[in-house]
Amino acid sequence: MSARTYKARDFHRLSTPWNVIFNLFAGIFAFLCVFPFIFVVIISFTDENVLARDGYKLIPAGWSLEAYRYVFQTGDTLLRSYGVTIFVTIVGTIVSLLFISFYAYAISRKSFKYRNFFAFFAFFTMLFNGGLVPTYIIVTQMLSLKDSVWALILPLAVNAFYIMILRTFYSTSVPDAIIESGKIDGAGEFRIFLKLVLPLSLPGLATIGLFSTLGYWNDWFNALLYIDNPNLVPLQSMLMRIETSMQFILQNSQNSSLSLEALRSLPQDTSRMAMVVLATGPIIFAYPFFQRYFIQGLTVGAVKE
């Protein structure tokens, strides 16, 4: 038996003790990744007085739903903010995938005459941008998107870094022979892209789609700049406003008509954790839809023997 064959067998077939050790290590690492969120959930259900007396504990002495009652007392406002965020996330991800996939595919083809120019155009925006003031003027005055849901979608629709990732994926995973075969059969560029390229690009598109989904779901800054209509406030921005209002009440408690006991009963730390759970929980369910392709998309450009 050659040394090369022995090495290959030794690498691919681990002994039982090593297999147990590696699985145990992977399980511990996975638990350490999940534990912070579990701990945040526990704190959000902890009684505020118990938290102030005993501090953060894995098993608190008292439980309470007061933090969630405080957040949900906004009623329809919270549900409306959830609806705005879900709409912006879904539509924004679709629009972003369309723009990025078309742009990346064009600059990945050697037959495209101006691919170097447009590749440099995208790369240049990764290094330099126009700044906040010109962006605000363009969105509010030139495009007239003030107090529009599109002000939450279009500014994040195209990301130069995602374009470069997807261009690399197209260059390494879509052979030129497939494109040529489509042209021989008389297919146009759009038909080649839809029928031949997209089915091969699911790992890359899933990776970019997950990044875009997280970006839209967690965005609050665009709402701060462009949204004054309370009916268009997304979830993250609304939770931030609740937090700001609570801090304002506590800081101005001497001038407030509320009693000192009522002010002390406000769930400060637990409400923050409840906001984290409400903002993070739904997006967790997006991962199973992307998990099948995510790892393969992250290894784009990897060298195989």
Rank of each mutant, 00 (worst) to 15 (best):
L225D: 00
F248H: 13
P60W: 05
W18D: 10
L79N: 09
F123I: 12
Y68A: 04
P203C: 04
F121Y: 12
L278M: 10
A106Q: 04
E189Y: 13
I295G: 11
M275D: 00
F72M: 06
E48G: 04
V95Y: 07
P155R: 05
R4L: 14
L98D: 10
G130P: 04
P175Q: 01
N255A: 12
Q247D: 13
F169P: 04
R272A: 10
F102H: 13
S108M: 00
D47Q: 00
S171D: 14
V34E: 09
F289M: 05
F290R: 01
R191G: 03
H12Y: 15
M126N: 03
V40L: 11
S237M: 14
I42G: 06
I43E: 01
N218G: 04
S111R: 15
T168P: 00
F123W: 11
G55A: 01
S96Q: 08
S181Q: 12
Q247F: 13
L210V: 04
R292D: 07
L232R: 05
G204M: 00
D47W: 05
F11P: 03
F29M: 14
G297D: 05
F128G: 09
I163W: 00
Q291V: 11
V139C: 03
S256H: 02
F102E: 13
V276G: 02
V88K: 05
T46W: 09
N129D: 15
Y162R: 11
K146P: 04
I28L: 12
Q236A: 09
R191W: 10
P155Q: 05
G209A: 01
P155H: 04
G130Y: 00
L79Q: 08
F118P: 01
L260Y: 15
G75L: 07
W150E: 01
I94M: 11
G186F: 10
P288R: 08
N49F: 13
L154Y: 07
V277Q: 04
Y162D: 12
L202C: 07
P36D: 14
R53Q: 15
S212M: 12
D76I: 11
L210I: 02
I184D: 02
L166S: 02
S181A: 10
M238F: 14
T125G: 01
E305H: 13
Y287P: 00
Y105H: 09
L298I: 02
T244R: 11
V41K: 05
N218T: 03
V174E: 00
L232M: 06
I192L: 11
F128A: 10
S245D: 13
A262C: 07
I179T: 12
F161W: 13
A187K: 15
L198T: 04
M238S: 14
F124H: 00
S64L: 06
A30Y: 08
I21V: 15
F289W: 08
E305C: 08
P199F: 02
V88N: 01
A30S: 14
R264T: 13
M1V: 11
P134W: 05
S15I: 00
V197I: 08
T74I: 14
F161R: 11
T168E: 07
